[in-house]
Design a protein around this nucleic acid. Structure first.
Lengths: 113, 113
DNA sequence: TTCCTCCTGCAACCGTTGGTTGCACATCAC
DNA sequence: GTGATGTGCAACCAACGGTTGCAGGAGGAA
């Protein structure tokens, strides 16, 4: 059994630290534009815009034009799915590690016998 | 509060799908070499070797020379730390999403009043 | 309306990284 | 010693995160 089924696009979307930061900001501020986001970060507006397009592509974020600006907000359902994938992979590895630990302990037991 | 403190090197190490696959294989097989890993995957031995060096650099894996081959095995403690970071980020986002959900419900309540 | 400002989008360019091929070197078995 | 197998190094390519520069559209003030 390999690691739980993972949508690689979704994972790589939240894999980038800059994008995670953007999601954080969008969540705390309840939305924002490329400009407002870039003002709170250390990267250019254009870099933010690029990231927004990839986040939009995987559905983690949705941008709606509002006048002369384009406001983005997080799609909570999709982010929830991404979080679920994080947990799934983490849980799978955790289970494996625990199994290894148990085996190691068992070996110790037999050695002490 | 931004996302829980994350070791970006560790995170990006497990962020790559190929490297996650390799960790999976190393865990299930209890170790392996660049060649044995590449045989179970769709990438070249050299690509695997490169990934092994970055995994080694962040301590997720350790390679010990054994004769003419170099055998790698997972460092469980470090992988456990990585898993902890996964859970931490997931939990942080989860908490935020739940808060948003509660707020939304509260708004619904006032509207219905 | 006109002009100025602000925000967006597109294009070109650069460095890093994941991936490949090719080759040279070391080690084990015969 | 010789062949087979495993490793490591170097060159090369495509994709990606990031930058600068510039053209264009929407709002507000004269």
């Amino acid at each position: 059994m390999t690691t739980a089924v993972v949508d690689d696009d979704l994972w790589s979307a939240i894999g980038d630290p800059t994008r995670r930061r953007m999601l954080d900001l969008l969540l705390t501020d309840g939305g924002g534009t490329a400009t407002t986001l870039s003002q709170q970060m250390t990267v250019t507006r254009q870099a933010v815009a690029k990231h927004l397009t990839v986040l939009d592509r995987v559905g983690l974020v949705r941008g709606i034009p509002a006048g002369r600006e384009r406001r983005y907000h997080v799609d909570e359902a999709q982010l929830a799915r991404a979080v679920a994938q994080l947990s799934a992979v983490g849980a799978a590895w955790d289970a494996r590690l625990q199994r290894i630990k148990r085996i190691a302990e068992a070996i110790q037991q037999t050695k002490n016998t």
